[in-house]
Design a protein around this nucleic acid. Structure first.
Lengths: 189, 189
DNA sequence: CGCCCCATGTAAGACGTTACATGATTGA
DNA sequence: TCAATCATGTAACGTCTTACATGGGGCG
């Protein structure tokens, strides 16, 4: 089985939340913070075809309400399994090189797919990966800061600060989940 | 003239700093914080060929020291002009949708290519773009925070915090440059 | 001699982009 | 009836990925 690109997982995650047509998905990409993914038909329709060919989703034509036929896709059990596997695989520090976007996509879907307890596990794995990643960044910074021109040094500091902000967010998110669990366990229902 | 991809500009910027062979450039990509760019020969050599075909760089074969021939590339005046144009074009808030990486690459090269005063201008343009971008993000957050599950809300907050950190960095960088200018103007040499 | 590093490249395939095509329905 | 919106798709093109090919030089 070939590796599924980022867009494919975004589609799987959205379809898990709610069965949708290609057009629905395009609207989500163009109107929400998922703008980072392409809303062009030339990207989405072929991607849906690939996922269907791999047996991860199944489309059903809906010819009811008089409009042009729409094809509504939903996850198959195989698709759900693939999504779970992707979301729950531990975060490696290499996953952070090209930004946290991919990991964040996994986390955003996690609660609905694998549950809050597993979301927390994902966060802990992210925190550990960040520790090694930040150590490398800081070492590189020490080597660079004496030789680079101001703009180069500042640009590097930008990456460093961004990653530090991500670390703080991770700790905040972990605390949020832990508190949530405490409330549920402690509070009467 | 076709649009130059990100990798192309990264190559132009590095070649402006120092004429290099394809192999040198690959090593930079694989060993420094520019890991985000591919270090694979299948990406870099074709990219260099394209840039040469467009007249932005020129390669000279170096057959001196007994090793296999290496081809050292350097910027042409046309290439330098293109690089200047790219770096000094104002930042739009759309440039921030897919992360600050591209803008940061421009900034990192800016001082050596267009000078510190123009670097400062780029930063101010970035600050303005961030203001509108953050306003949009915050509006979307208000709409989302009541309906989204915890993990979805937290993931969005991550993006928000990251952008806020970027804004703070921008202000810090602007202050750094302004202070630098004051020192130069004020201090005897 | 075999192995690793220098150094350059190509080929096949996957993916995304832009632009175009199609056709039905709703509303001015 | 004309335009806009719903809804799906295809074709050409460019770029990146992975994998392979080539060949010289230094070293044990």
């Amino acid at each position: 089985m070939d590796a599924i690109p980022s867009l494919g997982y975004a589609l799987l995650g959205l379809l898990q939340q709610k069965p949708s047509s290609g057009y629905d998905l395009r609207k989500i990409f163009s109107s929400t913070s998922m703008r980072t993914y392409s809303d062009s038909p030339g990207a989405i329709y072929p991607a849906l075809q690939r996922l269907e060919k791999q047996g991860l989703i199944r489309g059903a034509i809906e010819q009811g309400s008089g409009l042009r036929r729409r094809q509504v896709f939903r996850l198959t059990s195989k698709g759900l399994a693939e999504l779970k596997k992707w979301i729950s695989s531990p975060v490696a520090s290499e996953n952070l090189v090209s930004g946290p976007q991919q990991v964040m996509l996994r986390f955003a879907f996690s609660e609905g797919v694998i549950g809050a307890a597993a979301s927390l596990e994902l966060l802990c794995s992210l925190e550990a990966a960040l520790k090694t990643y930040l150590a490398n960044l800081r070492a590189e910074y020490e080597a660079l800061k004496t030789v680079a021109p101001t703009s180069g040094r500042l640009a590097f500091e930008c990456g460093l600060r961004g990653t530090e902000a991500l670390e703080k967010w991770t700790q905040y998110a972990i605390a949020t989940y832990k508190q949530q669990f405490k409330k549920i366990r402690g509070g009467a229902r």
